[in-house]
C-alpha cells in the first residue's frame, strides 16, 4: 500500500447531444423567452478598439458533410493581446462568444475584433489567435482548436511550430477573402483534418 493522493479526478465529459442549443442558446431553438439576458451573443461591444472582422466557415464531418448542429464557443484577448479581466484590457471586449452552425446551411459566423499577440509565460509571444471549443451530438469530449490569420506573422508561434507536418499548419489559419473577412473551415476527420489540441 502507498499513501493516498489528495487530488481528485476530473468529471468525465459526455456528448452535448442534439439538443445542446436548448441549454446554451435557447433563443436559437425559439425558446428565447426563458432568460432576460442570454449569454455570449457577442465577444465585443460597440467601441471595441482594433479591427472588426468577420470569420465564416463550416464544420465538416469525416464524410465531408457540414454539421448543422455544431455549437462553438470562442475566447480571445483584445486587440492589444490583453485578456478580459486583466488590468488595462479593453472594457468593450468580453472576449467570449457562443455561435452555432446554421440549421439549414451549416455555416457559422463569428464577428469580433482581431486579437493581438499574447505574451507567453517563459517570455516571447504567440501569434494572434482565437481559441475555439466545439461541441455537438457525436462529439464525446469538446474539441479545442485555434484560429490564426494568414495576414499575421505566424512564424514564431510555439504551437504552430510544434506541428510536424507543415501542411497541417494551414488547417489552423483563416484565409482572408476580403477586407475584414476571413474563411475558416473545421474538418473533424479525414483529409485535411483540423489540428485539435490537448492543452
Amino acid at each position: 500500500m502507498v499513501q493516498k493522493l489528495e487530488t481528485l479526478i476530473e468529471s468525465a465529459s459526455q456528448t452535448a447531444g442534439p439538443y445542446v442549443h436548448i441549454g446554451l442558446m435557447p433563443s436559437y431553438t425559439g425558446n428565447g423567452q426563458i432568460y432576460d439576458h442570454e449569454l455570449g451573443h457577442s465577444p465585443i461591444e460597440d467601441g471595441a478598439k482594433g479591427e472588426i472582422i468577420e470569420i465564416t466557415g463550416e464544420v465538416f464531418d469525416g464524410t465531408g458533410w457540414a454539421l448543422r448542429d455544431a455549437l462553438i464557443e470562442s475566447w480571445q484577448p483584445d486587440a492589444a493581446g490583453n485578456f478580459p479581466g486583466n488590468e488595462g484590457a479593453d472594457p468593450a471586449v468580453s472576449g467570449w462568444c457562443r455561435f452555432a452552425a446554421d440549421a439549414d446551411s451549416g455555416e457559422f459566423t463569428l464577428r469580433t475584433v482581431k486579437p493581438g499577440k499574447v505574451a507567453l509565460r517563459g517570455g516571447g509571444f504567440s501569434a494572434p489567435h482565437i481559441s475555439l471549443w466545439i461541441v455537438a451530438r457525436g462529439i464525446n469530449i469538446g474539441l479545442q482548436t485555434r484560429i490564426y490569420f494568414e495576414d499575421e506573422d505566424n512564424s514564431g508561434d510555439p504551437l504552430l511550430s510544434r506541428i510536424e507536418q507543415a501542411p497541417r499548419v494551414q488547417t489552423l489559419i483563416a484565409k482572408k477573402v476580403a477586407d475584414g473577412k476571413y474563411r475558416y473551415n473545421i474538418r473533424l476527420q479525414g483529409e485535411g483534418e483540423t489540428v485539435f489540441l490537448d492543452i
Partner: peptide
Amino acid sequence: TSVARSPNLPLLAM
C-alpha cells in the same frame, strides 16, 4: 454519430 465526428489523428498536446 461519433464514428464520422471523431478525429483520426492524435491531439496536439501543449
